[in-house]
Amino acid sequence: MLRYTVLRTGSLLISLIVASLVIFFTLEVVPGDPASFMLGINAQPETIAALREELGLNLSPWARYVGWVTGLVQGDLGVSYTYRTPVAEIVAERLVISLPLAGYALALTILIAFPVGIWAATRRGSVADISVMGATQLGIAIPNFWFAMLMVLVFAINLRWFSAGGFPGWDEGFWVSKKALTLPAISLALPQASILARVMRSSLLDTLDQDYIRTARAKGLTKGQALRGHALRNALIPVLTIIGLQFSFLLAGAIIIENVFFLPGLGRLVFQAISQRDLIVVESVVMLLVFAVIMVNFLVDLAYSWVDPRLRGRR
């Protein structure tokens, strides 16, 4: 178990270093000079040169990379070119929305997908199973921004149960903020839950066909007991993989939904920073997202070994 964890940690660090190199040098080659963009088209060459000096853009790429990474490790993400405020502050402001939103959406995804997937798997080939499969197909096919607009129409404009968008801030109280995130979380969760329910169903069907389920039934377990005691945990491995991928996606991939609901989240921050050539913000946010993805995968790897003793190494 220790060996497994140490090996996983090692591969986590290597992934992070490679990712930081790729992110930094990819953005280096992107055309467009942040200094001239910030000062506008009528700026004097001398002013631009002075600003470049001030931003440290004249240093060699390696020196700037080392400076950037050292800063990252110390929690100093640098100062935004456009807002002239520390990037860490901007990101933190956005993260308090994006992270709870992703967590909320993922919780909904799991709460919907697990029961639905299990329910369909235990009724293989029945009308219930076929309708679930049809419904999840639809859930994957519907674009989530369209579904989001539909929900705004029904729940915000007609029924007036929720507000149509915006975020009051966490100071307004937990429930008020949670309510503001509910419609976005549902729109994000719908396609993800459809995918996860299908994965859960097929994974469970595979395990229910295994010999050890028959052994469990021969011991006298009811169908339900065999499902809970033996099939579910075995079916969990592919499901965990998908959950890991989904969390990373929910954190970074909410740009459209954030726009539909006017939420100042990470997705919108990246979008604005790219269009304003605010490279330092883009680099930091992308690195942060990469870090999140790699961390989530690391946790999923650890979860595997918790689920499956065969991965803990031989004794």
């Binding site: 010999d211 050890y212 028959r214 469990a216 021969a218 011991k219 006298g220 377990l221 075995n234 499956d308």
Partner: peptide, 30 residues
């Protein structure tokens, strides 16, 4: 009746046991 009055042993020992449970837990389950 199953497991109490009738016990059953299968052909494939490699797959007849739940890979995620200890052998003690699986025997104790009966």
């Amino acid at each position: 009746m199953r497991g109490d009055a009738v016990g059953m042993v299968f052909q494939e020992p490699m797959t007849a046991l739940n890979p995620l449970q200890t052998i003690g837990a699986q025997v104790a389950e009966t």
